[in-house]
């Protein structure tokens, strides 16, 4: 009864909101009738000013680099938040390590997925990690960039879970290393910004040699920041996956992927 009532109220209010949104947005310029000068200014000047082919990368890592730093902090805070939320409460590190040993033993069994999935998974781990590195490294030349590349690397990494089970996944994704890699990636981003402040007079100013557009080593800090973000996002996503897989081992130690 209550549920029915809730649905009807939500439906009426939803239709009202829909009408309001359409009414408000109908004053926007027609679709395809782009008015603003800002995008055109970036499009005209980015390649000449920064030797970068991808104007989106120029906005993300150069003209609007400060916001991207905030984005990195959001990502870092999320990884920390998930690790905190999924930790076992009220335990010392010793007990926690002991608990992880138990989980390891439970998880240390041959995986029950089929051979075809495991064999093709094994092939795709390498392919996806290389593809992710490629996407991150060529962010200033073609569509893609650090965020996308890092996410692809982590997606490939997840296949290790399919191929070797959680034992293999945990052994290959050490928290100690990934934590430091992620933190260093963010720290290097800030350091790059500070060096720009010293050499270029602006925080996150493009202080590296620009090179020639179209080359791998062009676009100065855009290229460097792309790689740093790729490393940070890749390590962070693997840490996130690790937390969720750890939880999966905990609730159902014998569950196979």
């Amino acid at each position: 009864m209550m549920e029915r009532f809730r649905q009807i109220v939500a439906l009426v209010l939803g239709m009202g909101l829909f009408t309001l949104l359409i009414w408000g947005w109908s004053a926007l310029p027609n679709f395809g009738n782009y008015p603003g000068p800002n995008g055109d200014i970036v499009n005209r000047s980015a390649r000449a000013e920064r030797q970068v082919q991808n104007a989106v990368a120029a906005v993300v890592f150069d003209y609007r680099g400060f916001d991207t730093m905030g984005e990195e902090f959001i990502f870092l805070a999320t990884v920390m938040g998930v690790s905190l939320l999924l930790r076992k409460p009220g335990r010392t590190t010793d007990e926690q390590a002991e608990g992880e040993q138990v989980i390891r033993k439970a998880a240390n069994q041959p995986v029950d997925s089929n051979d075809a999935a495991r064999t093709s998974g094994l092939v795709f781990v390498g392919l996806l990690v290389v593809l992710g590195a490629y996407v991150a490294l060529h962010g200033h030349l073609s569509p893609g960039g650090g965020f996308q590349g890092g996410a692809i690397v982590a997606g490939g990494w997840l296949l290790i879970y399919l191929v070797g089970g959680s034992e293999m996944f945990h052994r290959l994704s050490s928290v100690v290393i990934l934590d430091r890699v992620e933190a260093l990636g963010v720290a290097a981003f800030i350091l790059c910004g500070l060096v720009g402040w010293l050499l270029d007079g602006r925080f996150l100013g493009n202080w590296m040699p620009l090179g020639q557009a179209g080359r791998l080593g062009s676009a100065g800090t855009i290229f460097a920041l792309n790689v740093l973000v790729g490393i940070t996002v890749g390590a962070g996503f693997i840490l996130l996956l690790r937390e969720f897989i750890k939880h999966l081992d905990e609730v159902a130690p014998r569950r196979r992927p």
């Binding site: 603003g36 800002n38 995008g39 055109d40 499009n43 000449a48 104007a55 906005v59 557009a213």
Partner: peptide, 22 residues
Amino acid sequence: AAPIFETAEQTTLTSVDPIVQA
């Protein structure tokens, strides 16, 4: 076109706004 400029001449043609994509 997408805002990817492989040659300098391309920048004079119209492309979509890169800022909203960022």
